[in-house]
């Protein structure tokens, strides 16, 4: 765990003793020496590989970005234009005027935050009950949850649709959010995390008089922070991109989220003007990107918090 990369993020933790710092630096030297031993050919190949991967990921993103600033006629030209010339904000203007873009953003934020919060809270609570609390039928409940995880969501869609439609919840936020709040994945993930926590710490907290909520909040969750953040991130990204169910449930921009809304920029029987589509993609990506950068820091912090020596 004492990799040099992580030391760099620890600037606020001043209590690390100088001795352990020095040792970490020594480790780093050792690691560098190790790579030198492998010879320049491997090093070059390694960097080439990394550059290749970066290009694979970055080039399409870059292309989306520059296309969003191109004029319509410049999108399909040969040779390809690698810089918008002239640059234009027209696509963004068209994006926000041709479809009710901000309505879709609002809906996405509402649906994503509500569903994510519900999923995370329910996932954590159910996983906690299924891993650390003893009650009769616990195994059966867990089996049922796992079984729910195994049923592909395409199969449940129709019966869910029937249920929600009968409740008269079509084209409403609760109709979209509540069926999405099922948590089998979170339950499964967090349960495994909780079961992997050192049992003695849980017992220590019980002996220290911590009730179930306090045990969860003060002891179990802080130790599970990295997993929880990863789970939250996966959940938010999934909800943000969720397409099938919101598409079935929503009728118009009063409830439809961004992924559904952006499709109306595409011409489904003819030529699509890709400029606004790319602009919409850029704007839809931004919040998730920011969230990811922010939470990633949290995840690494969580990892360095220092567990108990086993």
């Amino acid at each position: 765990m004492s990799t040099p990369a992580i030391v760099g993020t620890l600037d606020d933790e001043t209590t690390t003793t100088p001795r352990s710092r020095r040792r970490r630096r020594d480790d780093a030297h050792g690691a560098e020496a190790g790579t030198h031993h492998r010879g320049p050919v491997w090093t070059v190949l390694g960097y080439a590989g990394m550059v290749l991967v970066v290009l694979l990921v970055a080039v399409p993103l870059f292309w989306i970005l520059i296309t969003s600033f191109k004029e319509r006629g410049d999108i399909y030209v040969r040779p390809a234009q690698w810089w918008p010339e002239p640059a234009t904000g027209e696509n963004y203007h068209e994006l926000t005027t041709r479809i009710p873009f901000f309505d879709y953003v609002r809906n996405s934020v509402i649906i994503t935050s509500a569903t994510s919060v519900a999923k995370i809270v329910l996932g954590v609570l159910s996983a906690y009950a299924l891993s650390l609390l003893r009650f009769p039928g616990r195994g059966v409940v867990f089996l049922v949850v796992i079984a729910a995880l195994m049923v592909p969501n395409q199969i449940t869609v129709i019966s869910n649709y029937a249920l929600v439609a009968q409740l008269g919840w079509r084209n409403t936020f609760q109709g979209i959010i509540i069926p999405l709040a099922g948590v089998a994945f979170g339950t499964f993930l967090m349960r495994n995390q909780f079961l992997n926590l050192p049992g003695e710490i849980i017992e220590a907290a019980r002996l220290d008089g911590a009730g179930p909520m306090k045990l969860l909040w003060r002891v179990v969750l802080p130790m599970s922070w990295p997993t929880l953040v990863a789970f939250a991130l996966i959940t938010v990204v999934n909800e943000w991109n969720e397409y099938l169910w919101p598409f079935l449930m929503s009728d118009d921009e009063t409830t439809a989220p961004l992924p559904v809304g952006l499709t109306f920029l595409q011409n489904n029987d003819g030529v699509t003007n890709w400029g606004p589509v790319m602009a919409g993609t850029v704007l839809a990506m931004l919040p998730i990107l920011v969230l990811f950068l922010f939470l990633q820091r949290q995840m690494i912090k969580g990892l360095t918090a220092g567990a108990v020596k086993s």
């Binding site: 220590a204 003060r218 002891v219 020596k309």
Partner: peptide, 27 residues
């Protein structure tokens, strides 16, 4: 267990990793 008023010292110490020494003791 939490109502017995019995304190235990574990082999692994089982300290709460997210709390300082003072918070561990005050918990």
């Amino acid at each position: 267990a939490r109502d017995r008023d019995i304190a235990m010292v574990f082999q692994s110490y089982a300290l709460y990793p997210n709390m300082t020494a003072a918070q561990n003791m005050a918990f």
